[in-house]
Design a protein around this nucleic acid. Structure first.
Lengths: 134, 134
DNA sequence: TTGCGTGCAAAGGTTTTGCATGGCA
DNA sequence: TGCCATGCAAAACCTTTGCACGCAA
């Protein structure tokens, strides 16, 4: 399964690679292709994303009920393989990558002291970003 | 808006108060009432939950895309007013209250070093609990 | 040729909205 | 009486599934 090299697969991977850490919804992807004259069915996009998630090359983040999920591409040699947390501003919706030594020890502490294994890649901190705090 | 005291409102608040920290979906609530012979429309449940969220008496947690949201009732005098984080096991769904000195400094650090104000009450750490780790 | 990949259409599920009716004050 | 609350039906929305056709190997 997933062995064939198709035109859609190449287009999708090429697009995801260009995102450079930005997160997109499935509809974002479809819209982007439509604007460039290419066309990939939304079904195909979801199916490729599912495979990439299974392969560990994409992560899916849920934000609000009823809202589309956000997908993040993880380049093979990129920084996104790190086990870091994300911040999401509940006002403007911005998703921020949190590279932080304080939080990097967090999962370890909680595991040792509380017997719970946090998965940073599944966890999003909600709050207010700098510009929305005023 | 929301000033009238109706039968449905009383029933719903009474049920939510009895949950004692457990989280439920809107459908859970409707099913529970149906089993007891009472009946509240799912629309009414969603509308009351929305109001309670606005009033800060209920929190909504998203787990997976397409899956129903979980609602947590916050008693006026309960422990849920504290600014502590919660852990949720993505296997069994258990919600754990995390009283922890390590994490209590977290919000402060992120605010000073990263300019982002984390709201602990809106944030849930996902991972695996002790019993699900085996 | 074989079998996966694609994409349209439809289904599935949760949540919201429109609107007529019912109940509180 | 006036106005909000209720709940049915339908809509809106994201995501998945069924199925026929197309394309890679």
């Amino acid at each position: 399964m997933g062995n064939y090299s198709t035109k859609q697969q190449k287009l999708l991977l090429s697009y995801l690679s260009s995102l450079d850490g930005r997160h997109v919804s499935a509809m974002d992807i479809a819209t982007n292709f439509r604007e460039r004259g290419e066309k990939i069915g939304i079904t195909t996009i979801y199916r490729h994303l599912d495979r990439l998630i299974t392969a560990g090359r994409v992560r899916r983040y849920i934000t609000e009920a009823g809202k589309p999920a956000c997908f993040l591409y993880i380049p093979e040699d990129g920084c996104f393989e790190d086990e870091h947390f994300h911040l999401r501003c509940s006002s403007c919706g911005e998703l921020i990558h949190l590279e932080c030594s304080y939080t990097s020890g967090l999962a370890e502490h909680v595991l040792e002291a509380h017997g719970f294994m946090i998965e940073p890649t599944q966890t999003v901190f909600y709050g207010k970003c700098k510009s929305c705090m005023e």
